[in-house]
């Protein structure tokens, strides 16, 4: 139960943050990416603001062995830069720029995104369904060392 309360609290803060920062407004996201148009730096403030509590959390994490609810804490990050990371991020970036939505805001705007959002979400879920197949194919093409 405690874990579910934590998850709800974290999700709520995430959703509230995405909402008040204007990140569910696709013009603000595309405005940040559009350096040759009317450039909008808001996203940099959102990212910068989010880094502060998160960096503190990572510092606290280094002094703990388990989470508050007793679960294991994430291990040190992998340093492996592979083709999947690059290819996937480039694909994601193009899609992000095309509509101005990434996964978080697509859920945050569920109640007011309209039919356009539902089309985007359906396609995103479809993409997530075919991703494991594609990932396996990429692994076969470039075997991990």
């Amino acid at each position: 139960m405690a874990r579910l309360i934590v998850a709800f609290l974290a999700g709520g803060l995430f959703g509230a943050g995405l909402f008040v920062s204007g990140m569910t407004d696709t013009t603000k996201v595309q405005g940040w990416l559009d350096v040759f148009g009317a450039w909008d730096p808001t996203l940099a403030f959102v990212m910068g603001g989010a880094m502060i509590p998160m960096a503190i959390a990572w510092l606290i994490r280094s002094r703990r062995t388990t989470s508050v609810t007793g679960l294991a804490l994430p291990p040190a990050p992998s340093k492996e830069i592979d083709g999947k990371l690059i290819l996937g991020s480039v694909m994601f970036g193009i899609g992000w720029g095309l509509v101005g939505l990434c996964p978080g805001p697509s859920i945050a705007s569920l109640s007011y995104g309209g039919s356009g959002l539902y089309v985007f979400l359906a396609a995103m879920i479809g993409g997530m369904l075919i991703a494991p197949m594609l990932r396996a194919r990429l692994d076969r093409a470039v075997p991990a060392e």
Binding site: L87, G95, G127
Partner: peptide
């Protein structure tokens, strides 16, 4: 865009 975001984020 949805397909690219769905596939891309899961591969990356």
């Amino acid at each position: 865009a949805g397909l690219l975001v769905g596939v891309g984020t899961r591969i990356a």
